[in-house]
């Protein structure tokens, strides 16, 4: 499965993905789930701050920023443009 290699941290600028699975053991990750970062949500990489961290994503039209270290816990399936 190529799934494992894609996480929110590997999405590039302008790329979209759908969250496939979340490693929820970290309480900070649970907090992000409460904000809507759960399996099935479509998410787009919008920008990064200086140095590539934190990353801003768009989730149902809303901006949400998270750090690289947390973005790794979210595995995504990339959405190819035109799908």
């Amino acid at each position: 499965m190529e799934l494992n290699s894609y996480t929110l941290a590997t999405l590039k600028h302008g790329e979209k993905g759908i969250i496939q699975s979340v490693d929820a053991s970290d309480p900070q990750v649970q907090r992000l789930m409460v904000l809507g970062l759960v399996e099935g949500a479509e998410i787009e990489h919008a920008s990064t701050a200086i140095g590539g961290d934190p990353i801003e994503f768009r989730l149902f039209g809303c901006g949400i920023s998270l750090r690289q270290e947390h973005a790794r816990f979210f595995q995504v399936a990339p959405v190819v443009a035109g799908d």
């Binding site: 990750v29 409460v34 809507g36």
Partner: peptide, 20 residues
Amino acid sequence: GEPPLAIEARIRYDWVRDTL
């Protein structure tokens, strides 16, 4: 044994997506 907050988020956001 799963984190309750994660379970809650999954169940509720499933409903939210359907409703949306």
